[in-house]
Design a protein around this nucleic acid. Structure first.
Lengths: 124, 124
DNA sequence: TAAAGTGTACTATTAGTATTAGTACACTTA
DNA sequence: TAAGTGTACTAATACTAATAGTACACTTTA
């Protein structure tokens, strides 16, 4: 299910996290299903459990999985995940706009930008 | 005019670039005036010319100064600088919105956001 | 309750990158 | 041509990220 590329510039934990992100978003790993254990993956890939742990910590931080002590890690709800990502994206956009306003960008410029982005295909 | 703090976590070239950013934005160093030479600053601060050079490269990249081969570095026009910063900021905002649209954020949400940012104080 | 499974915390080692320095080169002006 | 300037290349160093080693703590189940 998971493989590692030692040629890649990406650190192992990023490769692992990335693979799981895809599997979760595609629904291959459904919500609340159990993730493979840190130890089993470590053995399977012949790397240190802590590296898997780091990948899982990342996924947890991003909202892809949730840990249960002594039981294992489980796949989070993808719908919730989308909401979270939207929220953080809107927050980032707000911060950028605040800075832009301070720099003298007019409100109309942002309105134009929004119109521009939503130009093609009224309902995306 | 320039001093260095060896206690600081910031690398030397960042400290130097930061100091000049302020001086330029405040107008202490007017447009088209000559920057101190890489060598003179290096001697004054007792550090390697290349470190000054790195700070200057950064400032050049950011549009604060422009180099003339064999002559020296000169302060750029601050008005131009502001324009550049606005442009890159708008570009970043666009990228963010594109991603947001793909994620399912509605146009109205962005319009609300713009209104929100420009709420207090109609003319900033 | 003991054993086997799980995640977690801590430290140490290694690898990689950023930072600074050394030195030599090339251009401009007087 | 000499003295000023920036620039490119390489080397040394310092710092941080990435991985591994090991021990601990919790949960389930036989």
């Amino acid at each position: 299910m998971i493989s590692i590329n030692y040629q890649s510039k990406l650190p192992l934990y990023e490769q692992i996290a990335g693979r799981f992100r895809t599997l979760i978003l595609q629904g291959v790993l459904p919500a609340d299903s159990q993730m493979p254990s840190v130890r089993s993956l470590a053995v399977e890939l012949s790397i240190n459990p802590n590296t898997i742990q780091k990948a899982f910590s990342l996924l947890e931080q991003e909202g892809y999985i949730y840990p249960v002590k002594g039981r294992g890690n489980f796949v989070a709800d993808t719908a919730e995940l989308n909401k979270k990502e939207q929220a953080s994206l809107l927050e980032a956009a707000k911060a950028l706009m605040d800075r832009g306003r301070a720099l003298g960008i007019a409100k109309a410029q942002y309105l134009d930008l929004v119109n521009d982005v939503y130009r093609k295909g009224e309902e995306p």
